[in-house]
Amino acid sequence: MLDFRLYLAQRISAMILAPLVLLHLGVMIYAVQGGLSAEEILGRTRDSLWWGSVYGLFVLAVAVHAAIGLRVIVAEWFGPGKRSLDLLMWLVMLGLLTLGGRAVYAVTLA
């Protein structure tokens, strides 16, 4: 049920995610020092090409990684056909891209 290219896409997205998750955690710890405020966060992210790209890539990698991972779990637990799996995978990917994309847009460009 898992095409080798999907397997590769999941591995590559994992390799992208690993450093980004560490960076994200690091920034969170740094950001909460001395209290957390919306102004402080937006001051860092608004109009920032760097944070826009980092979180844009993050969202992309999460969408790919999670959608393929869910596909495998659903395939093994419930065994639906390939078409349902494809549909599920694309829906999850699009959903995560939309939600994540909106959030990134909100803190950088909006």
Binding site: M1, L2, D3, F4, L6, Y7
Partner: peptide
């Protein structure tokens, strides 16, 4: 070994 049911499973 990378076709259907290949090593990726």
């Amino acid at each position: 070994v990378t076709g259907p049911g290949g090593c990726q499973s």
